[in-house]
Nucleic acid binder design. Structure first.
Lengths: 128, 128
DNA sequence: CCGTATCCATTAAGATACTG
DNA sequence: CAGTATCTTAATGGATACGG
C-alpha cells in the first residue's frame, strides 16, 4: 500500500491511521478473519475450513489461505500421505492479532444495535 | 452483510469472527479510518479533511463521510452561511472505536517488519 | 465551500469444472 | 483430500466536469 503519511506524517494520528490500514489490508478480506479465528483454536485442515467457514468457495479459501501464509499469519504443513493431508496453524503473530481483535469485537457487540438503528434512521430521513 | 453464523453459530469463534467482520465492513474502506482519526481530535470541515487525508478524491471523501454518518459514527452539522460551512464530529461511539483501534495499531507496529519479511521470503521461495 | 454526476479502470469475489 | 483453471459479475475507487 502507498502510505505516504508514514514517511512524512502530516499529523501523528494520520501515521497511526495508516498503520491500522496496513492491518486491515491484510485482514480486511471477506474471509480472512473467519479463517484466522478457526485456526486460532488449533491446526485445521482444508476441508475442515471449508465446512467451518460458511459460504466460502474453494477458490476463495485457497486464495485467502495463501495470502495469510504469505504474510506469516498461517503456517502450512503438508503431509505427503495418500490421501494428502494439509494442516494450517496460526503463528504466534496471528494469535496476538486474535487477542487484539477482541477489543474490536467487543465494540461491535456493544454498538451493533445502535449502528443498525442509525442506519434505519438515516435511510428514513433521506428517503424523500 | 449476510452473517448466518450470527443466527445459528457453528462455533462460538465463528460468531465472533462475524461480528468483527461487521466492524470491518463499516470501517474497512480505504479512507474510513483516516477520516475517523481526523475527526477524533475535534470537529473538522470538508476542505480540512480534503487536505488532511492525503490522496483522497472529493468523490471518495463525500462517499465515506456519508457512510460514516449513516452508521452513526460521524455527526454532520451544516451552518447555513455564505459561504457554506459543514462540520463533521465524531460521535461517542466513534471515539470508543478509536480507543479499540489502538490495540490493532500496536499489533501492526510490532509486526510490520516481520510481515514484510515473511512476504519477501514467501515470494522468493515461490518464484521458481 | 461543499458537494453531485458520469464514465472508466481495477480488484474482489462467485460459479463451475477439472486434477495429482 | 486439497487444490487449479477459467469465466463472469459485483464492488471499489479514480478522473473529470459541473452545480447550489
Amino acid at each position: 500500500m502507498t502510505c505516504a503519511a508514514e514517511n512524512v506524517p502530516f499529523t501523528p494520528g494520520q501515521a497511526r491511521a495508516c498503520t491500522v490500514r496496513e492491518v486491515l489490508d491484510r485482514v480486511g478480506g471477506k474471509w480472512s478473519i473467519s479463517i484466522l479465528v478457526s485456526a486460532s483454536h488449533g491446526p485445521v485442515r482444508f476441508t475442515e475450513l471449508e465446512r467451518n467457514v460458511e459460504g466460502i468457495s474453494r477458490r476463495m479459501l485457497t486464495l485467502t489461505l495463501r495470502n495469510l501464509e504469505r504474510d506469516g499469519l498461517l503456517h502450512r504443513t503438508v503431509y505427503p500421505t495418500v490421501p494428502p493431508k494439509v494442516e494450517y496453524t496460526a503463528t504466534p503473530m496471528a494469535l496476538e492479532l486474535y487477542e487484539s481483535l477482541v477489543a474490536l469485537t467487543s465494540w461491535a457487540e456493544r454498538h451493533r444495535r445502535a449502528i443498525a438503528e442509525a442506519r434505519t434512521r438515516y435511510d428514513a430521513e433521506h428517503a424523500g
